[in-house]
Amino acid sequence: MIVRILGEGQYDLDEAAMDKLNELDAAVESACQGTDEAVFDAALAALLDGVRSLGTAHPVDAIDSSDLILPGPGSTLAEVSEMLGDEGLIPG
């Protein structure tokens, strides 16, 4: 699976990583229901760090479409709230 972090690049992740990423995604979704920017920032940072640590950088010269697109670091609570689907940022 190829996951893109906007403004950063793509990462290759295997299906085994998705359970952990779904946990982190649930924390982002929960943080978006509140108004505490610090809680939201920490949850988004944890999700993006999870993608980076569980995945490997996708070759920069490869032109492949992303299976998932996540907001980049520094995204606001409002921006991410607009990106959320019924299943959060990561379906599953």
Rank of each mutant, 00 (worst) to 15 (best):
V28Y: 02
K20S: 15
L48Q: 07
P91V: 06
L21H: 03
L6G: 02
R52V: 15
E15P: 00
M1K: 06
G92L: 12
V28P: 01
P91I: 04
V51H: 09
L6N: 07
Y11K: 05
P59E: 14
G72M: 01
S66R: 05
D67F: 13
Q10L: 04
L70H: 01
A57I: 15
L24W: 04
I69L: 11
A57V: 15
M18I: 15
P91T: 11
N22P: 05
A38H: 14
A57T: 15
A27E: 12
D61A: 11
A42Y: 06
G7K: 06
A57P: 10
D49L: 13
M1L: 10
G85M: 06
L89R: 05
A43W: 07
L47M: 11
G9H: 08
Y11M: 03
G9P: 08
V60N: 13
R4N: 05
M1D: 06
I2M: 03
N22M: 11
L47W: 08
R52K: 15
A38K: 14
A27M: 11
I2D: 02
A38T: 15
D25H: 10
G34D: 07
I63V: 13
G7V: 02
Y11F: 15
L47I: 10
A46S: 14
D61S: 14
G34Y: 08
T56C: 05
V28R: 04
T76L: 03
S30G: 03
E29M: 06
E87D: 14
I5N: 02
P73T: 07
M1I: 07
M18T: 09
G50H: 04
G92A: 12
L70V: 02
G9A: 14
R52C: 11
S66T: 15
M83W: 04
Q10N: 07
A17L: 10
N22L: 12
D19T: 13
A17H: 07
T35W: 04
I5E: 00
N22I: 07
G72Q: 01
V80Y: 00
D86G: 12
G88W: 03
G7P: 12
I69R: 13
